[in-house]
Design a protein around this nucleic acid. Sequence first.
RNA 1: GCUGGGGUGGCGAAAUAGGUAGACGCACAGGACUUAAAAUCCUGUGAGACCGAAAGGUCUCAUGCGGGUUCGAGUCCCGCCCUCAGCACCA
Length: 903
Amino acid sequence: MLKLSHEVNLFFHWRLMIMDEKYFAKKVEQKWQKIWSENKTFEVEIDSEKPKFYALEMLPYPSGNLHMGHVRNYSIGDALAWYKRLKGFNVLHPIGWDSFGQPAEDAAIKRGVNPLDWTEDNINHMRNQLKRLGLSYDWRREIFAHRPDYYKFDQWFFLKMYEKGLAYKKMTQVNWCPNCQATLSNEQASGGLCWRCGNLVTKKDLEQWFLRITNYADQLLEDMSEIEAGWPQKVLKRQRDWIGRSEGAYVDFKLTQPVGEIEKIRIFTTRIDTIFGANAVVVAAEHPLIDAYFECFTEEVKKTIEKIRLEKRKITDYEAEQEKEGIDTGLKAINPFSGEELPIWVGNYVMMEYGTGAVMSVPAHDERDFEFAKKYGLPIRQVISSPHQSFDKFGQEAFTEYGILINSGEWTGKTSEEAIKEMAEYARRNGFGEPAVTYRLRDWGISRQRYWGAPIPIVYCDDCGIVPEKYENLPIELPKNVEITGMGESPLAKVAEFVNCSCPQCGKPAKRETDTMDTFVDSCWYYFRYCDPHNPDLPFDPKIVHYWTPVDQYIGGDDHAVMHLIYTRFWTKVMRDIGLVNFNEPVKRLLTQGMVVGETFFEVIPNPDDPSGKGKRIYYPPDTVQVERDQKGRIISAKSADGKPLQWAIERMSKSKGNGVDPDEMVEIYGADATRIFTLFAAPVENELVWNETGIEGAVRFLQRVWRFVWKWQEKISDSTTCEIDKIEFSAEARKLRRKTHQTIKRVTENLESLQFNTPIAALMELLNAIYDFKVEPENASPGDLFAIREAVTSLIVMLAPFAPHVAEELYSQIVGNEKGLLANGVRFPEYDEELAKADEIEIPIQINGKLRSKVVASADASDEDLKALAFADAKIKEYINGKEIVKVIVVPKRLVNIVIKG
RNA sequence: GCUGGGGUGGCGAAAUAGGUAGACGCACAGGACUUAAAAUCCUGUGAGACCGAAAGGUCUCAUGCGGGUUCGAGUCCCGCCCUCAGCACCA
């Protein structure tokens, strides 16, 4: 029967393609990926007629395989890109490869492969994976960070920064990861751990190129106000903490006897109001004063200094606070406020990297100084008193709050707030200090003793010194066939053809810089390059970039909050200062998606080496584990194949834990559309996403249900003979369906505008359920029924496009009878009609004293009085209020009635 | 320790301005179709108690815990507890 009607359908609609009765994901997906590619559906150019939208996702590192985190990231971006296109925007949606970096070199070391081949192979494989997901990128704009036409401009930017004094070289202790054999920036060594492998970081002396990000510290802070509305506050907070602005004052303490050239020692303090309580000046072991006087110290002092220096260099156990250590150097300095002579100590708790590397020690009002003074029996003098309550714990702990100054000469009696301002001013007037601001943020060290990065375009000439390369000589290309040992020295240093060059200034033989740039340089400006990806002369044409940028929506993980996201903000400000862009902030809105996690199974074996006693986990792949669940579906026990009892948890997907899911496999089994729908539906985007196989099956079921319905109604829906709408009569059922349709359009639109992706899919499922509830068969549908069905189904299909574009395209093509696709057909996201979305009958809950007691049905335009009357007429309510005193009646218009009674 | 998120069924989660808590999905259970299975469709599903032969109905308790404001609190206020994340001698 069904088969027959299908043939009849084909007979009458000869122009239609044959529609499969069943949904075959792979077939549909291959078909539409081909059409999109042939029709250049997602290729865009500047169009002044349309509003633009720049949808950007963080570009992947080509590690070899896509993982579910990528799928989630790109599904979100693609949904947004599709939605905006259907809303009439000119959408730029590009992708590329962050293809410089260490794994390529590691592969070279371990397996002897060429980093270039390894990288290109990985890109080819991963590009295919992305294409199989059917993501709507403009592939013409694909960029490759490792290719000379791209890194040429890393070098170009470096030269620009060098010219502006923003790039400089200095000898420094760098962060060094012994495991990766790599230098790390401060951001990459945050928390004392390597950002890539998690190992503890050590220190190493090296000459390094730095970028003066600290010049922009204040702007990086202040301009946050421009993006506050669109960025997650946790990201901004982390950046704020990282920049670590701190207001205080410098104070110079004169030495009683000059040490060589050094006559005074400058300290930084936020609590100048406590200066009368200083009992010592404490300096870092690396302080210049220590170096200058070193030979004159007693043996004991020398030994202690050496010990502290050594300790600092060692792997620091970042969890344990180190015990304070120090020694009186024998030198003296004078407190400029009190005139008191103070000893100068060396202390391991003073860091050379922060402030001036020297502090005044005020034990009564600083916890660290207190601890130090206690240990070494230094005097503790109270100079701040608490205005509110008596603080009687002096001698037991430090009082660190603001208060009233005491024992402070002419400043006695002032509040801390007043004194902080006035004393810094006083110091300035008298030439021994000034108000000051310090930052935790350090300059960005970009030198890497690595091969697989952009060479730093600098030449060392015996006569001219450090000479920047000429712009016309760019790119300075990476040589091929380089021996990579991974021993921590620059591989390029051993390549004579590369190193030996002529000086760009005098032409004499010279040597090239052999370090390469941190790969975070590449990602600082890549999304500007997308706008003008093949420009041979400039990183991009400012005019083109002016149309597309700033980025309207950026999507990615929040793990780059103080790396990529702070570097790229800095880079943008530099680009602004050299006239390439005309705004302060490159990204208007940022969305950070949560991790993809999965169930893990493991046994814990005790690890005697680990003092924390956590033990070591041995993981078992989930498909080898026998899991027992109770009636409710909870796991009650898990056993390995050989019967060992296992523990379970939910953890980030990774190979070593065996809980990873291969996107290719998901696409193969369930299809790209279902995979994408599930990743978006299962949880809000910012939450963790727990992967479970049955969930994705639910997504397939949903798509199949849509398909089946369209298949059944295809003939009727695609029949283009239309009636005039005002002549159509709608049954109550049809009106109800239309209402649901318009309510759904409203919900989906609002949800997408507020970047929710799980709730609109739920709304579409509800609409589909309503369509299925509409119990009319195609053969006996009235014009009103048909209209309602057509409206519901067409809206559903178009609204499905952002989440499951292949299915949407296919079903739409079946209805419209051509294969041009939604966008070429000029399809727009449906608009809702407020009137139709309104219910004509509403259910009103009736409460007695705030408790739900009954419900009544009222017409949608019922007045408060009507609702009240209905409530009192209700039999159940009558019973409740029978004989009771009615205190008051609250009517929330069109929502609820609450009757307050007494007795 | 400091800072910022977050605690809602068996699970993932919904809930525009305080106004029917648990939409949607998963899982589970029962039923229909089938020779059978899969698929599909239908029904049920927060906990407890009660009325009724049944269909169905009623009540109480439920959004981490304890208070408060309010006619009414998942939502607002105060105090705790737990949890995740970031930072950590920053002077």
